[in-house]
Computed example of a mutant assay.
Amino acid sequence: MPLLLKQLKLARFRSHWQPLADQADAQGWSPGQFLYALCEQELEQRQIARQQRLLRGAHLPWQKGLDGFDHQHLEPHHWQELQGLTRQTTWLLQAENLLLFGPSGVGKTHLAIAITMAMAAQDQACRFFPATTLVQLLQKAKAAYDLPAMLQKLDRYALLVIDDISYVRRSELETSVLFELICHRYERKSLLVTSNQPFREWDDIFPSGSMTVAAVDRLVHHCHIIGIKGESYRQKAAAARVSKDSSNPPT
């Protein structure tokens, strides 16, 4: 039996059929009840394994959920909107985008990671990229005359995260591939973009005003826009450490 189950790739069956068979005998289960219990455990294990694969495939820099986010710098309606987005995947199915704006250190990347994790938990394939890393990947594909194939390859992800788009240098070589990505996914697949610059400063990202307008137009057409205000958490933490050290000088 274990050999047959291994060949059928029923891992959970193989490890649990005997204990469940003993339980079925002891409790007088019908064959149908026994088979149902086995199938239920197999499906549960496969779902857990798939979610783990999706999380690994997202290439997150770390894992942090929404519960650990300090939302004091968010407007209450924005916080409610974010919570709602993590609970369902309708916005991905409708190819809607999510833009997170705010100064450095207020938790934009944390939110992007938390949302990615929530979508992976709901069986959605996602991919997280620092903006500069993504641009380098697209540039390499374009240099090899393989950009269309790379854009199609990225279509496997229902959600593509572009973190810190403001750090992309303003040049035709860099931003042209980023613009092509935005155009390619428009009304087809979702983007989550974080930025420490408002739209009015995106001329510093794209080399021409017309390209900026076209990129923003496609991003915001079907979009949720969240603004985060406040002081950098990292700066506050550093200031707290300095204050603590100054109040407790070495002896």
Results as ranks from 00 to 15, higher is better:
128 F>V: 04
219 L>W: 04
11 A>P: 01
59 H>W: 10
242 V>T: 13
213 V>R: 11
54 L>Q: 10
199 F>E: 03
8 L>V: 04
113 I>S: 02
157 Y>H: 04
22 D>S: 08
96 E>F: 09
115 I>N: 12
223 C>R: 12
128 F>W: 06
22 D>M: 02
206 F>S: 02
115 I>M: 15
221 H>P: 02
32 G>P: 01
62 W>D: 14
188 R>Q: 14
82 L>C: 10
101 F>M: 13
174 E>V: 08
55 L>G: 05
154 L>F: 08
209 G>I: 08
149 A>F: 07
216 V>H: 03
81 E>N: 15
150 M>E: 12
194 T>L: 01
118 A>W: 05
216 V>R: 10
205 I>E: 07
114 A>G: 05
13 F>P: 08
17 W>H: 13
235 Q>R: 14
67 D>M: 13
48 I>K: 15
95 A>Y: 05
144 A>G: 05
248 N>D: 08
215 A>C: 07
209 G>Q: 10
57 G>M: 04
99 L>C: 14
78 H>F: 03
244 K>D: 04
152 Q>C: 07
181 L>E: 09
13 F>N: 08
69 F>H: 11
247 S>A: 15
118 A>Y: 04
242 V>W: 12
211 M>R: 08
93 L>D: 15
129 F>R: 01
9 K>L: 10
243 S>P: 07
12 R>Y: 05
186 Y>L: 05
159 L>Q: 04
154 L>G: 02
64 K>E: 15
235 Q>E: 14
57 G>R: 00
151 L>N: 06
181 L>K: 01
5 L>R: 01
6 K>H: 06
103 P>N: 14
72 Q>D: 12
128 F>D: 05
65 G>W: 10
243 S>N: 15
104 S>F: 01
19 P>Q: 08
32 G>C: 10
140 K>T: 14
68 G>T: 12
105 G>D: 14
156 R>C: 01
16 H>T: 12
21 A>Q: 13
189 K>D: 03
203 D>P: 02
46 R>H: 03
183 C>F: 00
103 P>H: 09
93 L>A: 15
115 I>D: 02
162 I>H: 03
